Simulated assay, not measured.
Amino acid sequence: MSEPVLKLSGIAKAYNRGTPGEIEVLRGAELEVGPGEVVALVAPSGAGKSTLLHIAGLLDTADAGLVEINGHDMSGRSDRRRTLVRRDDVGFIYQFHHLLPEFSALENIVLPQLANGVSRKVAEARALDLLDQVGIAARASHRPAALSGGEQQRVAFCRALANEPRLLLADEPTGNLDPATSDQVFAALMALVRNTGLSAVIATHNLELAARMDRQVRLDQGRLVPLEPTIP
């Protein structure tokens, strides 16, 4: 059996810990994501899915439990080591695109590659290839303000995959779009994920989108439980 790309064991997290206002968000969450597997994380707003994704992607630390990425336990690792793993092995997508407004679509995808030591020529070629895969290569020279919301989010997808991560974490990646655009953009994201063969955890409250992924889990009272997809 292949080693999981992501393994979460006994993840616990509380805010305002040790005070009367303590809020327990995660209570022993467990998750394994295999190579090339796309998992839907279903939960309403405020249930803790963003917290779980931040812990999985090493942006936050758990109060208890283990995070393993590519078989390596990240517990107690230095900030530098966590930063390197986050840079090299993990891609993030958020509900809002967070593109740099002064740079073109192409440049937004090139910049993280340059920071990772890739030559500009190679970085631009990869950026154009990714833009082509999501159907907006013709918009490469446009700045974010000149792009539609769906186009901006497609650029954000490409940026997240620029450094060829093995794991993609997406937090409501189409939640800021209208239903028709959301469906088109989600299809582009899934095609990009399948083409690159990476593993992904995609948070959504949309059960129709969740049903299009390999497996669905629900965050329920701080724990992850399997969810049987409902297909209309």
Rank of each mutant, 00 (worst) to 15 (best):
P35K: 14
Q221S: 15
P44Q: 02
F186Y: 04
A40N: 06
D132R: 14
L207A: 13
P179L: 12
E124Y: 03
N176F: 01
L66G: 02
N163M: 04
K13F: 00
I202C: 07
D132P: 00
P179Y: 03
R223H: 07
I11W: 04
A125T: 05
Q153T: 01
L167A: 04
R143M: 10
S141T: 14
E32Y: 04
A170P: 02
L8F: 05
P112A: 13
G117D: 05
I109H: 10
R154W: 02
G28D: 05
I136R: 05
V42S: 03
T61Y: 08
V38M: 11
R82G: 02
V5L: 07
H97F: 13
A115C: 13
N108F: 01
L207S: 11
G48T: 06
D60F: 01
T83A: 15
A156I: 07
P44S: 07
G222E: 14
I231W: 11
L227M: 13
L66T: 14
L198K: 08
D132N: 14
V90L: 09
L168M: 14
R27A: 12
D220Q: 14
K13R: 14
L53N: 10
P226M: 10
Q216G: 12
T196L: 15
D88I: 02
G197T: 04
A146F: 08
R194W: 04
V85W: 00
E22G: 12
E68D: 09
E107I: 02
F103P: 00
L6C: 06
F92T: 01
G36N: 11
G71Q: 12
P165L: 06
R120P: 00
D214I: 04
I11D: 09
I23T: 15
L168D: 05
V110H: 06
A12S: 14
N163L: 09
A127K: 02
Q133T: 10
P173R: 10
R139F: 05
G34A: 14
G91A: 07
Q221P: 00
V122Q: 15
L161E: 01
A156E: 08
K13E: 07
S75Y: 06
P35M: 11
A180C: 03
L169A: 05
E164W: 05
D178K: 07
R86L: 08
A188G: 02
